[in-house]
């Protein structure tokens, strides 16, 4: 299969179930919204080494936020609800409550399963915190030096899918990086998904295991162009750079759609092939076959 001049390799991405939560964060203006978004989703690329995988789902207009200020929708993923709660409480406490003018709201109000966030952070108010209960939703007002930090008591959680991915194999680093960025920008327009790595792109794709016993993952040598003559390379001769786009989503359908849109956007001049990362089907139950999802395009 080819899209434009790019070969779609007959491979599948291997994804796995996760637990997700959505936060709506508002602030006084767009500058502080972005600061809050970047800080709270920082160092959240992979649960291999981070407490969560997180990213910006989309920017929100004042009409879309609960308190009428500009805001952002953030998604957080972890392997368990307890794990997500711990990560979100720490991140909200250290990066949102500390960030000037912010407020934090539940982005999944209909969800049955919930994590306690404002309810855990309220104690920072040292007894001066105030709760407001409106339409079944409890908000905590914690006094801080610029007024008060408003945070919902609980946030909804849902099942999610992590580890969706595709690999962009290009002729030059510049061309391949351009294609990766286009793919991430296309995915950014979609709901329910994030690309948790820096700028949405991974250069250090990994394989499971290592020659070093302490490491759970190590460099994906088959896709490193510098190792073409050293290991059993998976790269065609004219490929000199590879980037991976990793996708986490609130459903398998959302991840499939993001993969489809991202792959199509990445099939540009200089991209030789698009492939996907898997572990032989043994790691995750969600298999996203590239040719299958692109068959109708």
């Amino acid at each position: 299969m080819k899209i434009n001049n790019t070969t779609i390799v007959d491979e599948f991405a291997e994804a796995f179930p996760m637990t997700a939560s959505r936060l709506l964060v508002t602030a006084a203006d767009a500058y502080w919204v972005e600061v809050a978004a970047r800080e709270s989703t920082g160092y959240a690329t992979s649960v291999i080494g981070c407490d969560a995988e997180a990213g910006i789902e989309r920017w929100l207009t004042p009409e879309e936020t609960p308190d009428g200020r500009c805001g952002v929708s953030l998604l957080f993923f972890g392997f368990s609800r307890d794990g997500v709660q711990k990560a979100v409480v720490n991140r909200v406490g250290q990066t949102l409550m500390t960030c000037p003018s912010t407020a934090c709201f539940d982005g999944m109000p209909a969800a049955e399963k919930r994590i306690e966030v404002g309810g855990a952070l309220r104690y920072f108010g040292d007894g001066y915190q105030i709760s407001k209960l409106l339409e079944g939703r409890r908000y905590w007002r914690v006094p801080v030096m610029d007024g008060e930090f408003l945070c919902e008591e609980t946030l909804g959680t849902s099942k999610g899918v992590g580890g969706g991915n595709f690999l962009i194999l290009g002729r030059t680093q510049r061309q391949t990086l351009g294609a990766a960025r286009q793919a991430v920008e296309a995915i950014a327009t979609l709901p329910d998904v994030i690309c948790p790595f820096p700028g949405g792109v991974v250069r250090s794709g990994s394989k499971v295991g290592s020659k070093y016993k302490k490491l759970r993952a190590s460099t994906n040598d088959a896709y490193c162009p510098t190792l073409r003559a050293t290991v059993a390379s998976a790269l065609p001769d004219d490929v000199h750079a590879v980037y991976e786009v990793v996708i986490d989503g609130l459903s398998e359908e959302a991840v499939v759609e993001a993969t489809r849109v991202g792959v199509k956007a990445a099939c540009v001049e200089g991209v030789v092939a698009i492939s996907a990362g898997n572990y032989g089907g043994n790691l995750g139950p969600v298999h996203i076959a590239l040719r299958e999802i692109l068959a109708n395009d």
Binding site: D67, K132, Y139, G147, E148, L150
Partner: peptide
């Protein structure tokens, strides 16, 4: 006590 723009008031206004 002070003058400020409490976020929770907007939630009530919208409700």
């Amino acid at each position: 006590a002070c003058r400020y723009e409490p976020s929770f008031v907007e939630i009530y206004r919208r409700e």
